[in-house]
Amino acid sequence: MKRLTAHINKLFETLPETEQTKIVREEIIRDLEEKVADLIEEGKSEEDAINKVIVEFGDIEEIRQEMDLPDSNHRKSELARLNLGFSLWGSGLIIALFVFINFYYTPHVVWFIYPAFAVAWWPLSMFYHLHRKKLEGRE
């Protein structure tokens, strides 16, 4: 029976661990254990019974599709959006600081544009990252 539980646990590893998947997993293990017990009663050895049950189980993908599991791609693009937002605010503040220093101490020489360009790489790379995640999600 341990082998059966281990097999089902392994199948469920591909699904995210939520309250819902946990309940379904428990339910399935209980039912399959009963099926194994029935098969043993019919005269099968425990090993044969477990093999048969595992083979007849089918594709876990069917269950996954019916569950409202959080879409990992969607979540990644949410995170990428957060990264972009943070980088925009962060670089905005840094550039503002450069502008301030520039015009406060050396009002006759405009040099803030150089560090501003360097800092702009940050939000730019985050924007690229977000765009890429979106494309990946569409596939």
Binding site: V24, I28, D31, L32, K35, F57, D59, E62, I63
Partner: peptide, 29 residues
């Protein structure tokens, strides 16, 4: 419950149709 239903299905059809557990629980969901 799940297993009782799958037994009933294969019994009623004389074993001609056996529902896979993965399918059955997907239907439940």
């Amino acid at each position: 419950y799940g297993y009782a239903l799958s037994k009933k299905i294969s019994h009623r059809t004389g074993g001609r149709f056996e529902i896979k557990e993965a399918t059955l629980y997907a239907v439940f969901q």
